[in-house]
Simulated scan of single mutants.
Amino acid sequence: MGGRREQMDGKRQFAHERFRETEREWEDALHNPFTQVVLPGDRVPTNFLRLHEAAYAPGRNLDEWAKARGQGEHAVTGGLPTRSDLALHLRLTERKAALLDRIAIKKGRPEAAVQAEEARALASQLRAEIDGAA
């Protein structure tokens, strides 16, 4: 019996070593979800999620799927909030928009005004997610 347990522990350790870098990338992407990309023809970068949106609210799509099949309102998540730091992300994004507005006005930088508008759009999405999770 001890040999089988040691074999399983060895496989677990191998898996941790093999996927360590991928795990770090995911962890980083969960804490810093956006990457900025300047699209062809644009002068201002656009924010894109680094992972699929389901990674940031893991049970939402599954809850919807289960509900559509008669399994109940929160069959997967049990009604848990999607992410505890969503409200913090919202506050920081709103602050970012305000600061970018100040830069646009005081420094005369129109690209900051565009970035502020993008931040407000993101804040609106975050607000809708928070309202949807409540």
Rank of each mutant, 00 (worst) to 15 (best):
D9L: 12
G10M: 06
G10Q: 11
Q13C: 15
F14T: 12
A15K: 07
H16I: 15
F19T: 10
T22E: 11
E23Q: 15
E25R: 14
E25N: 13
W26L: 15
E27I: 13
D28H: 13
D28W: 10
D28Q: 11
A29N: 01
A29Y: 00
A29M: 08
A29P: 07
L30Y: 00
H31E: 15
N32D: 09
N32T: 10
P33S: 10
P33E: 05
P33M: 04
F34N: 10
T35E: 12
V37M: 12
V37Q: 05
V38W: 10
V38P: 10
V38K: 14
V38Q: 15
L39N: 09
L39M: 11
G41D: 09
D42N: 14
D42F: 12
D42C: 15
D42P: 09
R43H: 08
R43T: 15
V44I: 11
P45D: 02
T46L: 07
T46Q: 14
N47W: 00
L49E: 02
R50E: 00
R50P: 08
L51V: 09
L51H: 11
L51S: 12
L51E: 08
H52I: 04
H52G: 15
E53H: 13
A54N: 12
A54G: 03
A55P: 04
Y56G: 11
Y56C: 09
A57S: 06
A57I: 10
A57C: 10
G59P: 09
W65E: 14
A66Q: 09
A66W: 05
A66F: 12
A68M: 14
R69S: 11
R69D: 03
R69G: 06
R69C: 10
G70A: 09
G70Q: 05
G70M: 01
Q71W: 04
E73I: 07
A75D: 00
V76R: 01
V76W: 03
V76T: 07
T77N: 02
G78W: 09
G79Y: 02
G79Q: 05
G79S: 08
L80Y: 08
P81N: 04
P81A: 03
T82E: 13
R83T: 10
R83N: 07
S84Q: 07
S84W: 05
D85I: 02
D85H: 06
L86Q: 12
L86I: 10
A87F: 02
L88G: 15
H89V: 05
H89I: 05
L90E: 00
L90D: 01
L90N: 00
R91Q: 11
R91G: 06
T93P: 03
T93E: 04
R95Y: 06
K96E: 11
A97Y: 03
A98Y: 00
A98I: 00
L99C: 11
L99T: 08
L100S: 03
L100W: 00
L100P: 00
L100R: 00
D101M: 01
D101R: 03
R102M: 13
A104L: 02
A104K: 03
K107Q: 06
K107C: 05
R109Q: 10
E111N: 13
E111Q: 13
A112D: 00
A112Q: 05
V114L: 15
V114I: 14
Q115M: 14
E117L: 12
E117M: 07
A119L: 02
A119G: 02
A119F: 03
A119V: 02
R120V: 01
A121L: 13
A121N: 13
A123Q: 04
S124F: 03
Q125P: 04
Q125W: 14
L126I: 12
L126H: 02
L126C: 00
